[in-house]
């Protein structure tokens, strides 16, 4: 349902949504009807060139676990103020059930110039009493002057520093925004969870934990020519953790080429004078990572993460993430040092 004259009225969209639910209810079999599910408002800011089908598929995959009112805003270059909207639903029927579960989706197309008009449109469309998460899929959008107004609606803004051309600059900007009070998440940090979890698990073993204060060197290998944001995050997080046990470790980054560029390939914690690393995780071919510690070799599966997997994790933390906030500040300093 497009809006005439390049403007849209939130009331009209809400009315369209009510009609949508009424029609969905009529389609339900017998008394089964449809079940409306919602746990948040998820605002997705994407470029018009961004793959609409991929975004739709990601949202559809997210809905069963994080049912939400999704508001997808697709931006195109343009100096004229243009806005259009349509509503539709994402429904699925759990296996063995007769009842469909549905979430509502609103798609808004907007020109860059109309960004200042968007916040007053989006605000009334958010679901009352539930968190609002803004997923900004492009670095350019984050840099648009009026983006802050849209971001102000959300409790949390999810970015991906891997989409920024200069990781160090991205970390600096994000760190400044966080220092100014904006609650942020970075999918580059999310990509590290499994690496961090493996490292944490290694040092749950008391014998390995006893070695931790001996760590003098951290070696991080990455694919890109320059360290990506993930490498800075990991280094900052490790340095901070080691400092807590009295170890002051040096960080060494190393490029070993390959794709994708944001991906890490190896991390090692070494102690001076010891030939073997205290712990190392190396990504092998395929999805398996080799974990070496205390003379034992283990395998862990680390398949490539999709947008769905990353957002699934981030949406489960709608509030503050102190570990990330700490790592962001430290990674920004490290990247700029």
């Amino acid at each position: 349902m497009g809006a005439a004259g390049g403007t849209i009225a939130p009331d009209r969209i809400l009315h369209d949504m009510a009609d949508l639910w009424a029609s969905l209810g009529k389609q339900g079999e017998g008394d089964a009807g449809v079940l409306r599910a919602c746990s948040m408002t998820l605002v997705v800011a994407a470029e018009e060139s961004d793959d609409a089908q991929a975004i739709g598929e990601t949202l559809a995959a997210l809905m069963p676990e994080h049912p939400s009112r999704a508001i997808v805003i697709r931006f195109h270059h343009g100096e004229q103020r243009e806005l259009a909207a349509r509503v539709f639903s994402q429904c699925w029927m759990p296996f063995g059930h007769r009842q469909q579960i549905c979430c509502e989706q609103i798609e808004i197309t907007a020109s860059d110039a109309s960004l200042p008009d968007l916040a007053p449109v989006v605000l009334p469309l958010t679901v009352p009493d539930l968190p609002v998460i803004l997923w900004c899929r492009g670095a350019r959008l984050f840099h648009l002057p009026a983006f802050a107004q849209l971001a102000a609606i959300a409790q949390k803004v999810v970015l991906d520093s891997a989409a920024f051309s200069d990781p160090a600059a991205a970390l600096r900007e994000m760190s400044e925004a966080a220092a100014a009070g904006r609650l942020l998440a970075d999918l580059s940090w999310t990509r590290l969870t499994r690496w961090r979890e493996l490292i944490a698990q290694i040092f749950e073993n008391r014998a390995q934990l006893a070695n931790l204060p001996l760590v003098s060197d951290i070696l991080i290998s990455h694919r890109a020519a320059a360290p990506p944001a993930t490498a800075y995050y990991l280094a900052a997080w490790l340095v901070d953790g080691l400092a807590q046990v009295g170890a002051h470790a040096r960080v060494q980054f190393q490029s070993d080429g390959g794709e994708p560029v944001w991906r890490l390939s190896r991390v090692e914690l070494r102690a001076q004078g010891r030939p073997e690393a205290i712990a190392s995780i190396a990504l092998a071919e395929g999805a398996a990572a080799e974990v070496r510690t205390g003379g034992l070799i283990n395998k862990a599966l680390l398949p490539a993460l999709t947008d769905y997997a990353l957002m699934r994790e981030e949406l489960s933390i709608p509030g503050a993430d102190p570990a990330f906030a700490h790592a962001l500040a430290a990674a920004a300093k490290l990247a700029l040092s």
């Binding site: 944490a200 040092f203 073993n205 046990v245 994790e313 993430d321 102190p322 570990a323």
Partner: peptide, 17 residues
Amino acid sequence: LENPFQDPLRFERRVPE
């Protein structure tokens, strides 16, 4: 000595050897 790498918000439970 406490494992400084735990992140209860994201990691599953801590499992000893």
